[in-house]
Structure formats: structure tokens, C-alpha cells
């Protein structure tokens, strides 16, 4: 038997919205420690990896490891029926062919029950090696979203270059070119919210090219976290990570574009 509950069901809906444009369906792997999911887009350029810790749930019980094969568009249809402040419970039998989703309003005056049919999904899993990245940038997620959206109107590829002082996003297209640089926030700046700052950890300057179409896709997760972390290396996939307080994180890996 698998059972879990989230006080803020809305978070789960946002998570599914952050995944469903990239991958159509996937396996939720549930074990005693939490829930994980991995899926690649159809062209094998981007990968999304979700890791939810049991500590983030108000209730969590997993007697035996279960795999829930889920079509995200179908699940999203059901989650649409959930109120913004509803509590969400998910339940599945060990060998069942469906999972139940229960939405309950704050005052328990409204309870909604949905049964989602599960799928058998034979999916390739990718082993992501532990890597020491040359540059790690933490910045406000809304700022990253805006940059990706605005630059994609000009070109389809962004060059991200990182130095100790700043991270620069450059774009070029038929109409011309441009760049936007974000300077590392002053370390002595004790005022203001940490989540508003741009922090750069650098081992070595890095520059790589990425398709803006995918980055824009990743920014669907902006609603999940005030900050985003970009990890870059030389000739390796970019990691875009959104951390949700104690619930876990959603990570997107994107293969670079390489000069021919």
C-alpha cells in the first residue's frame, strides 16, 4: 500500500505542470524515502528529474516499493478539479491498476475523489553521474524566466558565459544580437532577501550554448521556487534546479549545442 498527503495540493499540480510539456508520461517510483521520477523529451535532448522527500509530506506510507505509470496530461485533467487551497492525498494498492487522488478543502466541506488509470511504461532510465561543475549560479527564478522569454524573441540559441563577476546571456538572430549580464551581488550586502541575489561560485570561466526552447520549457517550474540554480561545465549538460523548501527538487538537464 502506498499513501501520501500534501497540505498544499497546489504544489503537486504545479509540479505536474512543470513536467508535462517535456514528457508525456512517466513512472513515479515510490519507496520508503520518497517519490522520484525521471523522463526525457522525445528527442533525448532534455531530461527532467523529480525527487520528493517523504519529510515534505504530512503523511507518507510506503510498505513496498511501487511504480505508478502516469500519463501527465490525464493526471493534469484531474488535478484541475482541485481547489487552490485543497489538501491532496494519493493512494495506490501494491498491484493495482489505478491510483486514487483525493482533494479536500481546508474546512473539509468539500471532498473530491478521482481514480486515475495507471499505465505500463517501459522507459529508459539515464544514469546521471555525480559531477563537479565549473560554475554554479543561483539567481531569482523570475529573472531567469524573463531572460529566457525575452531572448527567445530574438534568437533560438543562448550562449551562457560565466565569470567571477557576472553571468552573461547572449543571443543572436536575423534582426541582430544582444546580451544581458547579471552581476554577482555584493557579499557585504546584508539588506534584502537572499532569494533576490545573484550568487556565482566559479572554479573556471565557462561558456556554452543552449536551445532557448528547452530553457523556456524549464521555467514552467518558476512557480515552485523563488530561486533557480544553474550548474555548468565544459562540454556537459546544463543543470537547472528548482528547490522546494523541504519537499525536494525538480532538476532539468539540457545537452548543449556545439559549434560545428
Amino acid at each position: 500500500m502506498f499513501e501520501c498527503a500534501l497540505i498544499q495540493g497546489e504544489l503537486f499540480r504545479k509540479l505536474i505542470a512543470s513536467v508535462q510539456d517535456l514528457v508525456q508520461d512517466g513512472n513515479f517510483m515510490c519507496d520508503a524515502n520518497g517519490i522520484s521520477l525521471q523522463g526525457m523529451d522525445s528527442s533525448h535532448v532534455a531530461l527532467v528529474a523529480l525527487a520528493l522527500k517523504k519529510e515534505g509530506f504530512v503523511e507518507y506510507r510506503c510498505d513496498r516499493d511501487v511504480t505508478l505509470g502516469i500519463n501527465f496530461a490525464n493526471l493534469a485533467k484531474m488535478l484541475k478539479c482541485m481547489g487552490a487551497k485543497d489538501r491532496l492525498s494519493i493512494r495506490a494498492q501494491d498491484e493495482g491498476d489505478s491510483a486514487s487522488f483525493v482533494f479536500e478543502s481546508e474546512d473539509s466541506s468539500r471532498v473530491s475523489n478521482f481514480e486515475l488509470k495507471l499505465m505500463q511504461i517501459d522507459q529508459e532510465q539515464l544514469g546521471v553521474p555525480e559531477t563537479q561543475y565549473k560554475a554554479v549560479i543561483r539567481m531569482p527564478s523570475s529573472e531567469f524566466q524573463r531572460i529566457c522569454k525575452d531572448l527567445s524573441a530574438i534568437g533560438d540559441t543562448v550562449s551562457i558565459s560565466v565569470t567571477k563577476e557576472a553571468v552573461k546571456f547572449s543571443v543572436g538572430g536575423d534582426i541582430g544580437s544582444g546580451d544581458m549580464s547579471l552581476r554577482q551581488s555584493e557579499s557585504g550586502d546584508v539588506d534584502g532577501d537572499d532569494s533576490e541575489k545573484v550568487m556565482i561560485e566559479l572554479e573556471e570561466p565557462v561558456q556554452q550554448n543552449f536551445a532557448l526552447r528547452y530553457l523556456n520549457n524549464f521555467t514552467k517550474a518558476t512557480a515552485l521556487s523563488k530561486t533557480v540554480t544553474l550548474s555548468l561545465g565544459t562540454d556537459m549538460p546544463l543543470v537547472t534546479e528548482y528547490k522546494m523548501d523541504n519537499l525536494g527538487s525538480i532538476r532539468y538537464y539540457l545537452a548543449p549545442k556545439i559549434d560545428e
Binding site: 533525448h44 535532448v45 531530461l47 539515464l126 553521474p129 550554448n209 536551445a211 549545442k257
Partner: peptide
């Protein structure tokens, strides 16, 4: 002119 590579160039299918 940049060419898009795939993730399988970096990660191993398990």
C-alpha cells in the same frame, strides 16, 4: 551554426 547534441552522449542508459 551550432549543432544540438543529445543527452545520451553524456549519460549512460541503465
Amino acid at each position: 551554426p551550432c549543432a544540438q547534441v543529445t543527452l545520451t552522449n553524456y549519460f549512460v542508459v541503465t
